[in-house]
Nucleic acid binder design. Structure first.
Lengths: 213, 213
DNA sequence: AGACTGCTGTTACCGCAAGTAACATGATAG
DNA sequence: CTATCATGTTACTTGCGGTAACAGCAGTCT
């Protein structure tokens, strides 16, 4: 039986798969998220049907491709979150890690955030399911960390999940905007966001002190 | 001369345009963001080229369509932001307004957040510009309100913009997740998010008090 | 040896949606 | 009666996702 034997065909197929993914990676890095299957196949030196044999459909390829980058980014973020430092320091390092990643490879970032909706397989999806997997995964991850390490009162699990997704969304939107306009340095952005999370919004005074205003 | 006269052809064209937009609205509400030009034309009782004469391309139609809803939502949010109440109250009402809107018309919401990238006109765009117009507009709007009404120290304008986009992103991501999973009531979600903005993250105690951990 | 299986690769095609060209029609102005 | 201009149509091109059918090439069973 070939239960212990990877049959060395398996390994060959896996290697092919990885080669294809790297070709796809190169194309996406060059052409952005609208990279066509033809282009990817050409880059890999083969033709379309092979891609479809390996990945089923475009969604499958994109999912496989996204998983690699998502996993990589999540590992970096986990490391930042688990650093042995003060909470504020950890938050800032994590924010900076994310922002540095999207700054370094904007095309990849753009691809990850813009799956562009599959074409026919989406039938029957309810709203909400369309959302970007990376954001969801980051949100859940952060929620777990928050719940594990913070002492919130009753309902802590739910609170942690809301905060996880909320903070990730904050990071994402601010990062996206920052990447487009570059209105300040990365360090300034990190500091501003951390300030926001640290309650400076609530602590700030009104500008025109009238109570009815 | 017909400088004072809107030439009543103009008005007729405008009415047509509005009718087409409403037809498009109906289709998008029914089919989601992947509504085809053919479908929209059919719903309006006409054929494709007319749509193209009125809106240029699909991006144009989508932009016009999005503008209507975006304006409507922004008006609601402005009203909530300008309410004569305590800051926390205003924040909660604003969050609730947004969440109620996306809860009431998820298809519209999904459309607004998922323009699916134009096809050919995107050439030459740098990264960052892809982002959803509604989010950007909400971010800028909120930034303006924050800057107008809060007394932040030096660099207040930049801080306000970061916070504006950050808070909007938080609201958006949390809302998207909530809409998909419905893990709690709207009121609970609003409260949790407001708590986050009010610095409860920073105030919470560690679970295992070891300093090195 | 010769047929069977399974994998990799190809060409050539289908269906569908965006976008366009060219033609038809009906009102209005000179 | 004709020129014009907006409104509408059919029929086409282009490009992409996806698939069917076929071609070469290992090994394998009898």
């Amino acid at each position: 039986m070939d239960t212990t034997q990877p049959t060395d065909q398996q390994r060959s197929a896996d290697r092919r798969r990885r080669e294809l993914l790297e070709a796809a990676d190169r194309v996406v890095l060059r052409d952005g998220p609208q990279a066509s299957m033809n282009a990817i196949a050409a880059e890999a030196g083969i033709t379309k049907p092979i891609l479809y044999r390996h990945f089923g459909d475009k969604g499958g390829l994109y999912a496989a491709l996204a998983k690699r980058h998502t996993d990589a980014l999540l590992n970096s973020l986990r490391a930042a979150l688990d650093a042995p430092a003060e909470r504020r320091e950890r938050v800032e390092v994590t924010l900076d890690t994310y922002l540095a990643a999207i700054e370094a490879r904007p095309q990849v970032y753009r691809f990850l955030m813009h799956p562009s909706e599959g074409s026919a397989s989406d039938r029957g999806f309810d709203v909400g399911m369309h959302s970007i997997p990376l954001l969801r995964r980051m949100g859940e991850e952060l929620a777990q960390v928050i719940e594990d390490r913070l002492d919130l009162g009753p309902g802590s699990q739910q609170l942690a999940r809301v905060w996880g997704h909320g903070i990730v969304g904050m990071m994402h939107a601010a990062g996206d905007w920052w990447l487009g306009e570059r209105p300040c340095t990365r360090a300034e952005l990190v500091r501003s966001l951390a300030d926001l999370l640290w309650g400076r919004l609530a602590a700030a005074g009104d500008k025109m002190g009238g109570p009815g205003f």
